[in-house]
């Protein structure tokens, strides 16, 4: 696959501002952060959750617990892909019962990843509520799922690819639309 960048959705400043806004919205919607926990979906939801926790700390002066969720075992497309993805550990160092869980991911597309994440969390216990925060919502949902917090809504065509690059993993911050030129 040869990817060519077609348009920038968010640059580094754009990502920073979007996350700041989402942090405020999380605090506002939940009237503070009592019982709020962040769970990042591997891989890029994890640094995003960490950044959101940092923002919340700056605003509220409080730590929100962070968990890491690997949804591979809950995917619904395992039988259609050739190689099994490598499974990483799910690390959620707190009980999810009665918590308000904010799931964090980079891009919301078909909704299937979020569906898998919801199932995975519910197998861990009974949270009071699950909310969803994403950096980019690109549309084309295949399931009745919507985000509570969105960094940016971007209309895309199905053929386009939306990629988020984060400094923690990719040495730079940006969200872009790419096309496969191969």
């Amino acid at each position: 696959m040869a990817l060519q960048e077609k348009a920038i959705i968010l640059d580094d400043n754009g990502i920073r501002r979007a996350l700041t806004r989402i942090a405020h919205e999380i605090i506002e919607k939940n009237k503070g952060v009592d019982n709020v926990v962040l769970i990042g979906i591997r891989r890029r939801g994890v640094p995003l959750a960490e950044r959101l926790a940092g923002k919340i700390r700056e605003i509220e002066g409080r730590e929100v617990p962070i968990g890491v969720l690997d949804i591979t075992l809950y995917r619904d497309d395992l039988t259609t892909i050739t190689h099994q993805p490598v499974i990483h550990k799910t690390e959620i160092p707190f009980a999810v019962d009665n918590k308000i869980i904010v799931l964090v991911d980079d891009v919301l597309f078909t909704g299937r990843t979020v569906r898998a994440a919801l199932d995975a969390i519910i197998d861990l216990g009974r949270p009071r509520a699950i909310q969803l925060a994403v950096l980019v919502d690109r549309g084309h949902r295949e399931l009745p799922i919507r985000a509570d917090y969105v960094g940016k809504n971007v209309p895309t065509s199905r053929k386009e690819i939306v990629s988020v690059y984060l400094a923690e993993l990719d040495k730079q911050d940006k969200a872009v639309i790419e096309v496969d030129t191969a």
Partner: peptide, 23 residues
């Protein structure tokens, strides 16, 4: 190595209350 590493998250599942994944 791959088998041993994949077994680690599996062990976490056994320790949970709901010992089941839909895989």
């Amino acid at each position: 190595q791959l088998i041993l590493e994949t077994a680690e998250p599996m062990k976490d599942i056994i320790r949970r209350q709901i010992k089941k994944v839909p895989t």
